[in-house]
Amino acid sequence: MRPAVLLTILGMAVATYLTRAPLLLALSERPLRPRLRLWLRLVPLAVLPALAIPMVLLPGGRPLLTPANPQLWGALVVLGLTAARQNLLLSVAAGVAVVAILRQFGF
C-alpha cells in the first residue's frame, strides 16, 4: 500500500466520520434550521457538477469546448436519460458507450 494513498484513505475516513457521528451522538430532538437543511441538501448538487463539468470540458487541463469532444456528447446522453427517469446505471452505461464509439471513429 502506498503511504500517500494510505494517508489519503485514513484522512477520508476521519473526515467522513466527522460528518456522521456528531449529530447522531447529540441525540437532539430539535430538527435542523430550515436554511441549514437547504444548504446541506444543495452542497452535493453543487459539488458534483463542479467535479464533472471540468472533467468533461477540460480533459487533462486543456479546454475542449468543441463538438469534436466525445465526452460532451456522452454527458448530454447521461443527463438526457437520467432526466427522462431512466435507471442511473443504465444512463451511465449509455454515456460510456457513446464516448467509446465516438473514440473508435477517431474523435
Binding site: 452535493p44 448538487l45 458534483l48 457538477p49 467535479l51 464533472a52 463539468i53 472533467m55 468533461v56 465526452q71 456522452g74 454527458a75 447521461v78 443527463l79 437520467t82 432526466a83 442511473l88 444512463s91 451511465v92 454515456g95 460510456v96
Partner: peptide
C-alpha cells in the same frame, strides 16, 4: 466518473 456524477446530480 463524470457520468456517475452527472447522473447523481440529475
Amino acid at each position: 466518473f463524470p457520468a456517475v456524477f452527472l447522473a447523481l446530480v440529475a
